[in-house]
């Protein structure tokens, strides 16, 4: 034992290097999977408020663009209001709210990493929890992976570990959207059965199969589809609907039925 200490002391530079590197790498190992990043992250109120001060200033530069975005979104929503429809179908009534939207401001975001994170200025006290969906002007942005009291981090769709359940709008075929990791404009859809015809410009929307996102949010449009004779499933390249490099305000989706759905799944698993 004594010899070991003498050895470590004599090689103290190397030993300290190993210790520090092991600490760092064990932190890093949490970022290689979505589930592990849910368990460990560094978001906290102190760093959040420092970042917030800065974006308070820089936000003024985007006001015009954001206004335009809001106008478009308002128009889109008006089109969906009850009084925008000719009432012939009287069976459709809204019984209960299923989703609640919490607006938040982006205070930091990246697009150049393999797992891109967005930090926003809403947290636990605003009702944000892990695994909530995040959208921007009807496009899917990502999923909340960490919350502190006033801030939260979002793993954006630009993450190699993230998979989104989606469908092709024109025919309802279920696919999954992922990000291959090269550029922030384009994603990928996998598992397209060979009988499905895709053409450029086809819209990909969220499937509503997960409890995180409601159905019908935009993910992107198809830009390239390589169909191969010898394979059953093919891939296609899509252009993301959301401009991740230019993201200033987002909405976080709270599924009010989530506790009920969660307990249902747990019960089903137990039986």
């Amino acid at each position: 034992m004594r010899n070991l200490f003498i050895f470590l002391w004599n090689n103290r530079f190397f030993s300290l290097f190993l210790v520090l590197e092991v600490i760092a790498l064990s932190m890093l190992s949490t970022s290689y999977s979505y589930h592990r990043s849910l368990r460990f992250n560094l978001v906290n109120d102190a760093s959040g408020s420092i970042l917030g001060v800065y974006s308070n200033i820089s936000d003024y530069f985007y006001l015009k663009k954001e206004n335009q975005k809001l106008l478009n979104e308002n128009a889109y929503l008006r089109n969906q209001m009850e009084n925008a429809f000719l009432k012939t179908d009287t069976s459709a009534i809204f019984i209960d709210t299923l989703y609640k939207y919490i607006p938040a401001r982006v205070i930091s975001s990246t697009t150049n990493m393999q797992t891109n994170k967005i930090i926003v200025d809403k947290g636990k006290i605003h009702g944000i929890e892990k695994e909530m969906g995040v959208i921007s002007d009807n496009g899917v942005v990502g999923i909340v992976v960490g919350v502190s009291n006033h801030y939260s981090t979002i793993m954006s769709a630009l993450s190699k570990n993230a998979n989104f359940s989606a469908m092709i709008k024109s025919n309802g075929q279920l696919v999954s959207v992922s990000w291959p990791g090269d550029d922030y404009l384009h994603g990928e859809i996998n598992d397209i059965p060979s009988h499905i015809q895709l053409s450029e410009g086809d819209t990909i929307i969220s499937s509503g199969n997960s409890i995180i996102f409601p159905k019908g949010l935009f993910l992107g449009t198809v830009v390239e589809h390589n169909q191969r004779e010898d394979k059953d499933l093919s891939k296609a390249k899509i252009e993301f609907y959301v401009d991740f490099n230019n993201l200033h305000y987002v909405n976080i989706i709270k599924n009010l039925m989530k506790p009920e759905l969660d307990s249902l799944i747990i019960n089903a698993n137990n039986e």
């Binding site: 590197e21 970022s31 560094l42 760093s47 420092i50 994170k117």
Partner: peptide, 22 residues
């Protein structure tokens, strides 16, 4: 890392660089 919520990433690279420096 704290400000970008990238646990351990910059820490490990920077420590390695400091190890090579001398």
């Amino acid at each position: 890392d704290i400000f970008g919520d990238t646990p351990g990433l910059h820490t490990s690279a920077t420590v390695f660089m400091a190890f090579v420096r001398p």
